[in-house]
Every structure is written in structure tokens, then in C-alpha cells.
Nucleic acid binder design. Structure first.
Length: 328
DNA sequence: CCAGCAATCCGCCAAT
DNA sequence: TAATTGGCGGATTGCT
């Protein structure tokens, strides 16, 4: 994916948080830190002062014609009152998909993508409060409210507000690799725990935070530092001072996945980083990231990324453009 | 790609 | 009594 030019579309009222996330990830010049820079624009149908969800107003600098230049179109959350959606805007979205751009619907932005028709037959998610309505209004969209974010081809959607971060970082990872995505994540101080390459498979937690989450969070930090070691469930449980059975339950509650699945995700992200940043052999990288052998790493890699480690490395070391797209 | 085998996961339940 | 714990066994996953 070539990702240089990003356009965000906002409506009335402008969702402050979602717009802020997009600005934080794509709208700041971090070129001095060796991170990618973007042509970034906030667009709206009418270039006038638009009220936000929090009482103040902003004035977009661009109209929706600006969307035609973008590699990535981010559609911010839209209240159901924003109807009808201007035909010219829907046309920009359809045209974007046709010419190979990527579109991302954040939160209720999925409704706009659905209205444009680019979600027909595709999987998508949205804020859990609106999932039923999305499904009812657009029967051709396969709504999965359990995911933090969902990719289907060039169309991405994310659940509630905070999942926008996970989605946009995922896009950064696809375009620029795990190393860059991790650095951006660190820069905006997002904890790495949901930052696995497969965060879209983590179920959104509806259970309230429990005190045990702190213990698990500590353990996750510890495990990330020791990925190359034998991290069996028994070892992890001992480290967390719990019985294996209780540990497994706590882990589920805190992360939404099982220990093994989480470890595999984290190890895969580490392997990706090493493939990009080092010239070590795949065998060595497999050992350093905690996979028992190059063969094991290869199988996990193909399953998640759709290409083998050698191909992935070549893509990122020669041309920074055109990252492989995993089949969905 | 397969087979053999170990680790893992999860429902169940007795004990706290 | 209600909630939590943790051991057990069988089905499954997934490693070598």
C-alpha cells in the first residue's frame, strides 16, 4: 500500500476524538524522527465553520474534491441525523475504491461507507450501539460487532472511539511495517498490549475492568521482554503467582484471547520488526522472537500476513511502497 | 503434507 | 448461600 496522502471527511457535528486520532497519527510532521510524513487534509462538504461534539467549532480547509487525491480516505463518525449524505461525497468514496485507494470508516462512519455501497457483501464493524441498525439498514453488509476493527479488501471499519487508534495504527503497519507502527504507537503512548498484528480478532470487552487486570498487564509487560524464552502457560502462571487455571481465566478476562494466541501475535509482530530491521537469517529471527524453528515462524507468518517471511522482508527492504495485502 | 505426540483450552465440579 | 478457586479429563490445537 502506498500511503502518502490522507484525507479525513467530517460532518456536522465533528467528532472531536475520532478526528483527533486521525490528526495524531497522520496529521503531525514527525519527519525529524524518521517517521513518515503525509499530505493531510480535513475535508467537508461545506467549507464553513462546523460545530463539534464538544461545543466549539472548526473550519475545514478543504472541500470534498480534495478526496480525489488521497491514498487513504478516513470517514469520521457521523450522527444518524446527517441524512441524506450528499451524493457527491458518496461518489468520491466509490471513486476512491475504484482507483485503488483505501477507505476507513471510523465508528459510525461505517454507515457512510454502507450508503456509498462499498460495503456490499463485505464484512464490517461499527460501534456496538449501532451494530443492529447498520445490519438492518444495509442487509448486504456483514456486520460483526465483536471486532475492534475489520478489514475486507480495501475497506476498513472500526468499532467505538478508541478502536480508531487500533485501526489507524494497523493501516500504518500495513503501509510502513511493524517497526514504524510500533514507534508511532509509542510516540502517542498507546500500550502495546492490543498492538498485535491480529488486534482485529480481539473481542471488544464489555465486562468492567477488574483489579486482576493490573496483575495481567504487568505480566504482559514482562512477557514482551522475554519473548525468546519458553513461555508456557505454566511458566506464565508461576510468574504471575497464580495457578494455571486461574491464570488462564484472568488472562481471558483481561485480553480477550488465550495466552498462546496472544503470544503468537506478539511474537509475530517482533519477527516482522526483525525482518525489517535486521539482516539475520529467518532461522535466527525465529529463535529470537520465540518461535521454535523457521518452519514454525513461516507457517504463522503465512497464515496472518499471507506471504512468507522472505517475501515480506524483500518487500520492505527494497521498495517501501506496496506492502503485500493479506487475503481476507 | 503427514503422523505422532505434547501442550493448550474449556467445561465441569468439589472445595474453599 | 453466593462467589471464587483450582484440579481433572477430554477434545482440540499445533509443534516437531
Amino acid at each position: 500500500m502506498n500511503l502518502r496522502n490522507v484525507a479525513v471527511v467530517v460532518f456536522d457535528p465533528v467528532p472531536v476524538f475520532e478526528l483527533g486520532v486521525a490528526c495524531e497519527v497522520f496529521g503531525l510532521d514527525r519527519g525529524r524522527e524518521g517517521l513518515p510524513t503525509y499530505d493531510f487534509a480535513v475535508c467537508a462538504v461545506q467549507r464553513r465553520s462546523i460545530p463539534t461534539t464538544s461545543g466549539f467549532s472548526i473550519t475545514p480547509t478543504h472541500g470534498i474534491d480534495r478526496m480525489a487525491e488521497a491514498d487513504l480516505l478516513v470517514v469520521a463518525a457521523t450522527p444518524p441525523s446527517t441524512r441524506p449524505i450528499p451524493a457527491a461525497l458518496l461518489e468520491q468514496i466509490r471513486a476512491g475504491v475504484s482507483r485503488g485507494a483505501v477507505v476507513a470508516g471510523v465508528c459510525t462512519g461505517a454507515f457512510v461507507l454502507a450508503e456509498a455501497g462499498v460495503l456490499d457483501g463485505r464484512r464490517a464493524t461499527t460501534h456496538w450501539q449501532h451494530a443492529a441498525q447498520l445490519s438492518a439498514s444495509y442487509p448486504r453488509v456483514r456486520v460483526d460487532p465483536q471486532r475492534l476493527y475489520v478489514q475486507d479488501g480495501p475497506v476498513y471499519t472500526s468499532a467505538g472511539s478508541a478502536a480508531a487508534i487500533d485501526l489507524l495504527l494497523h493501516l500504518v503497519r500495513e503501509a510502513h511495517g511493524a517497526e514504524i507502527a510500533n514507534r508511532v504507537a509509542r510516540r502517542i503512548v498507546v500500550p502495546p498490549h492490543r498492538d498485535g498484528g491480529q488486534a482485529q480478532y480481539i473481542e471488544t470487552s464489555t465486562t468492567p475492568a477488574r483489579s486482576a487486570e493490573g496483575d495481567i498487564a504487568q505480566l504482559l509487560d514482562w512477557a514482551l521482554e522475554h519473548l525468546d524464552q519458553d513461555l508456557s502457560v505454566d511458566h506464565l502462571a508461576a510468574q504471575a503467582l497464580m495457578s494455571p487455571r486461574t491464570f488462564a481465566r484472568r488472562f481471558q478476562e483481561a485480553t480477550g484471547t488465550t495466552p498462546r494466541a496472544w503470544l503468537n501475535q506478539q511474537r509475530l509482530v517482533e519477527a516482522q520488526r526483525l525482518l525489517e530491521a535486521s539482516t539475520d537469517t529467518v532461522e535466527q529471527i525465529a529463535l529470537d522472537s520465540g518461535f521454535g524453528s523457521a518452519d514454525t515462524l513461516r507457517r504463522h507468518f503465512i497464515r496472518v500476513r499471507g506471504v512468507n517471511p522472505e517475501q515480506y522482508r524483500r518487500t520492505f527492504q527494497i521498495g517501501a511502497a506496496d506492502s503485500p495485502h493479506p487475503p481476507t
